[in-house]
Design a protein around this nucleic acid. Sequence first.
DNA 1: CTAGGGTTAG
Length: 704
Amino acid sequence: MTVPTLLTKNPSFLFSFKPNEISASLEKTIKLLKISADTRNLRFGKTLHSQLIIANQSNELNVIQTNCLINLYVKCGEISVARKLFDQMPERNVVSWNALMAGYLHSGLASEALKLFKTMNRWESLRPNEYIFATVLASCSDIRALEEGKQCHGYVLKSGLVFHLYVKNALLDMYSRCSDVEGAMSVLKTVPGSDILSYNSIISGFLENGYLNEGLEVLRKMVDGFFVWDNFTHVTMLGLCASLKDLKLGLQIHNQILRREIEFDVFLGSAIIDMYGKCGKILNAKNVFYGLQERNVVLWTAIMVAYAHNRYFEEALNHFLEMELAGILPNEYTFAVMLNSCAGLSALRHGGLFHSRAEKSGFKDHLNVGNALINMYSKSGSIEDARRVFSDMIHRDTITWNSMISGYSHHGLGREALLVFHQMLASFGVPNYITFVGVLSACGHLGLVDEGFYYLNHLMENFGIKPGVEHYTCIVGLLGRAGLLTEAENLMKSNPIKWDVVAWRTLLSACHVHRNFGLGKKVADVILELDPNDVATYILLSNMYAKAKRWDGVVNIRKLMRGREIKKEPGVSWIQVKNNIHVFVSEDKKHLESQKIHEKVSELLSQIKMLGYVPDIASVLHDVGDEQKEEYLSYHSEKLAVAFGLMNTPSGAPIHVIKNLRMCDDCHTAVKLISKVTKRKIIVRDANRFHCFESGTCSCGDYW
DNA sequence: CTAGGGTTAG
């Protein structure tokens, strides 16, 4: 039926019909019902419904009339009304079934659609047609019901319905979204005839499941077939480039879009911004963003994501203000990016503000917001708050569990991490690669060697996850921590995996803690071969020489560093008090209250000396006298930041300090004792992990 | 009278 354009384009025009004109012809009413369904005009549709009843003089409506009504109510989101009409029908045809099934599918109840289909199968006189299978296969695809999908495949093959393009495309969509690459490819190759939709479906399905190379392969096939790309194709292909971080291909696609003078809609714009962001080209992303005429919340969020992805967290946060000024309201994704940017900066107070705003805006129960909150709180040092969010969450996915597990691990709370992991398994959560990094590092904190190997060798295999270098590094750390240095060394020698600097450094810190000077020296040589500029290694090695009182060694390291022009990155610590972030640089006296802060440090140090604190002057690399060395130690940035925090927060409040480098031994001992004399909880986030100091002990158990 | 795809987070 051809719909007059005036009607579809301007649904309000429909109101100009007088009820008596409508009842003039039943046929006309049917046409109008279709129009009101297509334009989602429930009010007008209801009028037509009553007209239909009147015109029929209380006789039962016929099948076609009722089908139209079902379609109307389904399209307008009134699925239960549609169901009632359907149930009351004395006789139904395939159209009745399909209209209702499609209704369920589109209201997110695909399983209800499949249930309906199964009852229809018992209706012997009705043979499902291509419409039915298009809907049923789409339902299978929606809930990833591969088995049912395959059964449909069998039926449509035998009945020949597979030759309808709608059915073929639904099959492609079903297989690719269910991760059945072979199924999808065989449909593509064996069933003749494809259109641009066939390719869009299969490629986006592959992309969704991480089959990037398979996606590229199909792309090549498509290019050979000379299909004209539509906007869906462009969006999907840009997504492929983003996942592959393939800038070259991305630029080509962007070029093609410009050349063909395709208009940028929201989808295309955000896909391009995202592609540039993922490829690390933030300037290109920015240019596209500011070049657009209209910017909605998705585009704003996309540019924020691009900044955050490239670790420009402050810029991401600034865009939030800019967006608000532009009068655009944030949605749940916006809050997720903001919270994750706060996490990246350990900006606990800003994070807390976004938490309350997200709550007020009604996004509290969104999965991605909950996940971001856990991430923000645990990376900002408030693991208890992270736990609170986690416990309140109604739905959890793998990322939820992972965030909580690795959050606990970073805080040295191995037992809690493992408890969450077992809770995850008990509630049928599906662990992935990242889950086991958190789990194995938790085993490390607890010194659970046997359990660690059990998880690595058995549990991971059960879940079909191949251990990678991150997992083996955890095992090295685990062995090292347990003092099994030879075993750790042998593992690294015998395992053919490509060990990186991080892995070797893990072994080196184990040597440092256990004062195994001989092995430490060997390991340091390996690291410096891989990366002659690895400052952490020089420092650890020099510390080891100092601990062994090998002063010649200390001097040699110093010479080596000078010769290679390696400079130690200055230690920087920061702390937020009220709305200001106070930054302290080691041995720097620039803070406004510098004088007062140093007095506070001296006071604290003399207090803890009475508890047995001895400054670790051997660790000072400068070539100066002992007294001077002690002074250098007292100016370490974390000591300044802690002192400042103690002076400017109410007694009993926890103190959060962030530091750019690994905490040094001396500060670690000092802060432990400071937490004791001041009765304060002091949380320091260093380059590797969290240290939670309380009553004279640290959550890391002096191993970090 | 009934059936088709896309954007932003981790």
